[in-house]
Nucleic acid binder design. Structure first.
Lengths: 248, 248
DNA sequence: CAGCTCATGTGAAAGACGTTTACATGAGCC
DNA sequence: GGCTCATGTAAACGTCTTTCACATGAGCTG
């Protein structure tokens, strides 16, 4: 009946050797299958081929394992956002938009991490390391917003970068939470989450007075020979189509 | 030792009389205390003073109780939004902003419902009644967006109301989820969630070409003698302050 | 290499929950 | 008064979390 367990032990010996990693991996798989709420310490142990008590040698309790996953999630998240931002290349606006897309991509492609980070009900503020990781991730968005704010058209008051960052974050998070996952919580949408976010950000930036044609690659210092983009706020004669495409 | 239970039973007789309601109420209290994940069927039964098996006479399982709460939540949510919208009185923009605030207020003042609705991991689409209730709530936002879209300045392409509704929804939801609750998941903010949302919506609407002075009460058909508000997209000479107040 | 030590894993057990089943109660109806 | 059925109880099962005493063996020390 229980030859599986014994065989497994025979294969690997009394000591697992890398249980902590194995547990984290197992937890990720399980969360992907059954959600952050459905995931079980005992299941992870089973999947790693150890007794239900073994995990306690590596994590104080179930919540600490979840927190570890969330923390790794924030680290990967930060990395993805940083990579998407690519220090603002080739131009700030393009890079900025990539960051928003990276947010959605992360939510879709790493639903387990996303779950542990944002939906597990973990008290972020009670875990300093977790909070720090979360803040480092947000700092990427904030830095991007800072650079973008610096490009705000002169003559208008410059928007606070922190506010912009929070706005972009909440847009991305709202879309990701409501519509962003593989098949969970999906309502029928007239457009993809990516398109939805792209339009939202474009409209928002236009509201701040940024020029918003599709290729706003003309920055002070950029080596562009084109004429500067026409601000979208030119009036009725200005842009005939909005960020959502031509009306049908 | 167990006189409490017996006494309770003596007070109310063998039959509870209103167990279903009592369980829903108990569950709300428990979710408020310990979160949607921490809430327990047995606890609710205890709080209602009945045996752990009694709830099964009223709910197929724990998830059905949670779904009932979520459904009531959506109904109350719809009601609050409808009331905030007040059919667009006194003017569309004011009422629209009230809807956003109502969203945040609901998240803050009914965290139990909000939890059950958005954070419990319930598969909304698997429960037709729940899904319908959720869609009725969204329909309020959508109807408001419809009215607002109809007021879009002429000459520019009219934004799709559905898209606007989804944008407003995701903004509100993002802010509520990230910053909106009593003390959970709160990061230190330079402004209140309400102010953050108000600024975001204002910037967004301006991006769509809507006039955005603080009292945009001039609508076609409104009994206003003022001149129409100046569009915010007038250029550098236009509005000296943004939605976030004067720069310091 | 022998022996020690300590990190790591095991098994058993206690206590909580979810859920089912057979049985008890009593409110409402004939 | 007696029946019936919705509603509640007790007991039991399997699972999960967590703890504790004990087992194992990897790696250091001499």
């Amino acid at each position: 009946m229980s030859w599986r367990k014994d065989q497994r032990r025979a294969e690997r010996g009394y000591h697992h050797g890398n249980l902590k990693e194995a547990l984290l991996q197992a937890a990720l798989d399980l969360i992907a299958q059954k959600g952050a709420a459905g995931f079980t310490f005992a299941d992870a142990a089973r999947m790693a081929g150890v007794s239900p008590a073994a995990p306690y040698r590596h994590f104080r309790d179930r919540d600490e394992l979840l927190a570890s996953i969330a923390q790794r999630g924030y680290e990967q998240f930060e990395q993805q956002l940083t990579q998407a931002w690519d220090d603002g290349r080739p131009d700030t606006a393009t890079a900025f938009e990539r960051v928003g897309k990276a947010y959605l991509r992360f939510a879709r492609e790493e639903p387990s991490f996303y779950s542990a980070m944002f939906e597990s009900g973990l008290p972020v503020e009670s875990n300093p390391a977790l909070q720090a990781a979360s803040e480092r991730a947000f700092a990427v968005i904030r830095a991007a917003a800072e650079r973008l704010a610096a490009l705000a058209p002169p003559g208008l008051p410059r928007p606070p970068a922190m506010m912009m960052a929070l706005h972009i974050w909440s847009m991305s998070h709202g879309i990701a939470s409501l519509f962003g996952r593989g098949d969970a919580a999906r309502r029928k949408l007239p457009m993809s989450p990516e398109e939805l976010l792209e339009a939202e950000v474009l409209i928002y930036l236009r509201g701040l007075g940024f020029p918003t044609d599709r290729k706003p690659s003309a920055e002070p210092g950029a080596r562009s020979a084109e004429p500067p983009p026409v601000p979208a706020s030119d009036g009725p004669a200005g842009s005939p189509t909005g960020p959502w495409g031509r009306p049908k």
